[in-house]
Each structure stands twice: as C-alpha cells, then as structure tokens.
Amino acid sequence: MREELVHVSRLAAAGADADLRLYVSRLARRYRSKDPSLSQELAASLKERPARARPERFAPGTAAAAVEDGSLAVLRTTLPEDLNLEPPVFAPELETQLRRLLLERHRAADLARHGLRAASSAVFVGPPGVGKTRSARWIAAELGLPLHSLDLTAVMSSRLGQSGANLRSALDRAKAEPSVLFLDEVDAIAKRRDDEGDVGELKRLVTIMLQELDEWPSTSLLLAATNHPAIVDPALWRRFDVRVTFTVPDGQVLSKAIQRFLGDDADLAQYAGVFNSVFAGESFSEIERSLLTMRKAHILGDGDTQSIVAEVVAERARALSRDERVLLASALTGAGKISQRRASELVGVSRDTIRKHAKDGAFAGAN
C-alpha cells in the first residue's frame, strides 16, 4: 500500500490526470475483495468530476507533443469505468470469435511460455450500425484498459506532411501504456496504394500503418473497423491477426435485440412478432433508434400503443414484398390489438387475403 500511495503521489505531482484515474480505477478493483469499503471510496472518488474527454496536453518537444492539430484532438480517451459494460447482442459465431480474442489477451503469458503470441490486432468488417464500435468499447471494458479512439478528421491536415506526423503521434500515445486503440473507418487512411486518384500523402499514411502494425506492442490491442474492405490496401489487410465479420441481425439475434431495446415496456413487447417482421434486414442502431423513439412516445402519452406501432409499420411496409406484407398483416392481427381492417390499411393487403391465410392457419407460427 505504501508503494501504491507513492505512485499515486507521483502521478498527481506530474499532472498525469488520465494515468492517475486509470491507476485509481485499478486499485478499486484490486481491493474489491480485500477491503470493500476502501474499494467503494476509491470508485466514488472517480465520479466526483467527469473524466476528461481528451488526454492532457504534453510539453513541447515530447514524443506526444503533436497529438493535437490546431484545436482538434486526434485521440479521444475513455477510461474503463466510463465504458458501457453491457455486452452487445452477438450472433453465436461472432461472440465465439470475440471471446476467443479476449481469452488470448487474458492468457497471453500462457501462450508466451509455448512460444506463441496473443493476437494484438483485429479488423472488424461490416455495414454501418451492426455493433463494431460498441464491441470495441465492450472489449476495452472486459480487458480493463482505456480506449483510445482515433479522430480521422483531426489526423487529416491541410498542411503537407502534417497528417503523417499527426498519425504517428497519436499511435505513439496509444502505445505508451497498455490500452485499446480503435480506428473506425480505417479505410479513410488505409486505401489501396494502387489507386491513382489518391495523393502521395494518403499513400504515406498507409506506409505508416504498415510499420505500426508490424511493431505494435503485445501489451496493447489495436482494433480497426471498416465498411469498405475492398478498398483497404491488401498489404495492410494481411497484417491484422484476426478478422471479424459483423452482419445485420436476423433470427434469434434479431428477437433478442428487440427484447433488449424494448426494455420493460410490456405494452410494446406484445408486438415483438410485428417488430421481427418490420425490422428484418435493418441494423442494430436503426432498430434501437426506432424502438427507443416508440418507448419515449409511449411513456409521454404521445398516442396510444396501437397508433404508435401503426406509424412505424406504415412507414416501413411500403418497402416490403407482397408476401412479407401478408406476413406482417398476420402478425399485426395475431397480436390481438389490431383488426383485419386496420392491418389491411397499414400494409396494403386486402382483408380477403388476410382472412384467407388466417383461416388456412398458414401463419400460426408467426402469430
């Protein structure tokens, strides 16, 4: 405890606010079983004022002095205690991949004894809104490490040669201590070098990224995400230890996501079957946005439950095929709150069609 106190004093005297908060956070976890009261007091001290949204400034001439370009911070740092700890909704195969990555990181010493190295980099591939950023936050929280997010807008400078310096400085900062570095939309700085439309500055950024991945320390984890894997330089693509593919939710994953986003709203939950049809093929973020909007309208009394659901159904039904609209109409009437007449109006399917399929029992499963 004496050594810990001295270390805390040194960090405070040096003004290393982010490092100090990270160390206190680790102490709180360390004493959770030994001294619960002390652990709670340490954790409470971290909440007395909000964590900085960006790392502290560095003295001119230091390795991290160029972490900022003008007034834009290149790195945004989030400490472990400020990360969202709730696991995202994963497809089984996706969860298996991510947990294997975590297992390697947790048991890196066991691998090293056998001459093996835990994965230190991974690239997330998939369309927007399918959980890539949220998964990076969850991984950092599971590892108990700060999350550095690279602001690509700030990296790209109008001054010739400055973009490369910005990128190197940001990466140096992320490597200075154990952490998780997240590069969202990495294709913006890692495009194929055979693209004749790109200037030399962008090609130099690819070279920097290649060098950094080759030399990335085992103490930190580099995560990148892209919606456009085809334009990422092949040489960079090969440098990542793990490739993880994210897809839009379907089946049980879609149902689980809907249940989570609905929370404790029992009135809206009775339309879960309807939402499974309405939101098929949409991303997690779009589903969450729509359901949270409905929940707020319901809580605030902005229309009854049926009208709130009907508005969402009518908005999306136009994009569905006829067979999908028939299924949706059956799900609406099966919920027991919407008549066949109203369902017909909402989805554009005749009442005779709805009645016929209901009579034949063709949609018992959907109901």
Rank of each mutant, 00 (worst) to 15 (best):
Q306W: 01
L22V: 12
L320M: 15
E345Y: 10
L222R: 01
P146W: 03
R54W: 12
E3V: 06
V349Y: 04
E201T: 14
P146Q: 10
T245S: 09
G131W: 13
G200P: 02
V24R: 00
A108G: 10
P87T: 08
E196Q: 15
A14M: 14
A59I: 05
G303L: 00
A141R: 13
S33M: 04
Q40R: 13
D184I: 13
R32D: 10
A335S: 15
R239F: 09
Q340K: 07
A297V: 02
G281A: 06
A51L: 10
L98K: 02
D187M: 07
V24H: 00
R173C: 10
E311A: 14
R49F: 04
L27W: 01
V130E: 10
D19C: 04
V248L: 12
D352I: 11
V125C: 08
R26M: 00
R134P: 07
P60S: 08
R289Q: 13
D172A: 11
I287E: 12
R32Y: 05
R325Y: 00
F182I: 08
R342L: 11
A317N: 07
P50L: 02
L111A: 00
V155K: 05
L300Y: 11
L27I: 00
A364V: 13
T133N: 08
Q270W: 09
F240D: 02
R341G: 07
E93F: 04
T247N: 15
D352Q: 14
Q162N: 06
E48D: 11
Q259Y: 04
L236Y: 09
D304C: 01
R342Q: 15
D110F: 05
A154I: 12
N276Y: 03
R159T: 12
L320C: 09
V274L: 03
L292K: 15
V8M: 09
E68A: 11
T226P: 06
E142T: 04
F284E: 05
M1C: 03
A317C: 10
H357A: 10
T305F: 07
R2L: 04
D19F: 04
Q97E: 15
R351P: 08
Q306G: 03
R243D: 14
G115H: 00
Y271N: 06
L346V: 03
S71Y: 09
H357Q: 15
L42D: 01
S169H: 06
E48T: 14
D302V: 04
H228C: 09
L167Y: 02
S179K: 06
P60F: 03
W138P: 01
A13N: 07
A119Q: 01
E282K: 10
S25E: 03
A43H: 01
R117S: 04
T96Q: 12
F182D: 03
R32I: 07
I139A: 02
S45C: 00
R32E: 14
A230W: 08
S218G: 15
